[in-house]
Design a protein around this nucleic acid. Structure first.
Length: 264
DNA sequence: AGCGATGTTCGCCG
DNA sequence: TCGGCGAACATCGC
């Protein structure tokens, strides 16, 4: 589920289905989801308050309750949200349920239980404590600002794209798509990139993520020419038809095409 | 049985 | 101090 485009879909879902609804009480079915926060602290912060705003930074999702604080959610690998109305059955893997006063409910569902629910006084505070860089689609993040941030770092391009302190929101899947769109191998070292190449990486990042959001993060509607559907054994490059290469980086696989992507 | 999966964090090593 | 790497977290499916 959870890279920037997917989390943006969840934010819109929250905005459409939960905004303005008053939370009557919270049901914590799995305490681990709250980490160090206790169920009573969560209840005290949200009970009786309406959801008044939504937000997102990178892969972090926010929902303001009343005037404060903000509910903070991270989906990690398998987290998702479901809003149900009175009488509907409980969705699978529901870890925490926010019951609305009108009989509906918002469920935080997470098979693998890596996901997190917390509280913060302000999304910027959360971003600071978690060392989050600017959101990858933040309009204020210009090509030159991105290039400057990148120029201060060393390491493989893919590793840097996934580093949430550089920019927040890119994960392993879209990271490969961005590298293909930029025509740069995921193994290239950022310290070897020219200023022009740093700019193509920026343009690729914005274009891939913007397109994914426009297509509702639905893989089926992604453009022909994208590599995401070919990230598997036997996959072929959508541009040249050659088999895709697979390389292990920091314990996870990157898929790329040596014909189309230059090793800098 | 073993491995891999959309994420993050922590410890160790150079 | 930074970057690379592997493990850990929990669970399911091939």
């Amino acid at each position: 589920m959870p890279e920037l485009p997917d989390v943006e879909m969840l934010r819109r879902y929250l905005e459409a289905e939960a905004l303005g609804r008053r939370i009557a009480d919270v049901e914590v079915r799995d305490k681990r989801t709250l980490r160090e926060l206790s169920p009573s602290e969560l209840a005290e912060a949200v009970d009786g308050k309406p959801m008044t705003a939504t937000g997102r930074r990178g892969k972090w999702l926010f929902a303001r309750v009343g005037r404060a604080p903000w509910l903070v959610m991270h989906m990690r690998m398998t987290g998702t949200l479901r809003v149900t109305e009175r009488g509907e059955p409980l969705p699978p893997f529901t870890r925490v349920t926010f019951h609305f006063a009108d009989g509906g409910a918002l469920h935080f569902c997470d098979q693998r239980r890596f996901g997190i629910i917390g509280l913060t006084s302000d999304p910027d505070v959360l971003a600071y404590t978690h060392h989050l860089g600017p959101d990858a689609l933040d309009p204020r993040l210009s090509a030159s600002a991105f290039g400057d941030r990148l120029a201060k770092r060393r390491g493989s391009v893919k590793t840097l794209l996934l580093d949430q302190s550089l920019v927040a929101g890119v994960g392993n899947i879209y990271g490969d798509e961005i590298c293909l769109a930029a025509g740069i191998s995921p193994l290239s070292r950022v310290e070897d990139l020219s200023a022009e190449e740093r700019q193509s990486l920026y343009r690729a990042m914005r274009s891939v993520l913007t397109t994914a959001v426009q297509r509702m993060a639905e893989g089926r509607s992604f453009p022909r020419g994208w590599i995401i559907a070919e990230r598997h054994e036997g996959g072929v490059c959508p541009r040249c038809g050659e088999p895709v290469s697979r390389v292990r980086l920091r314990g996870r696989y990157s898929y790329w095409c040596p014909c189309v992507q230059r090793v800098v």
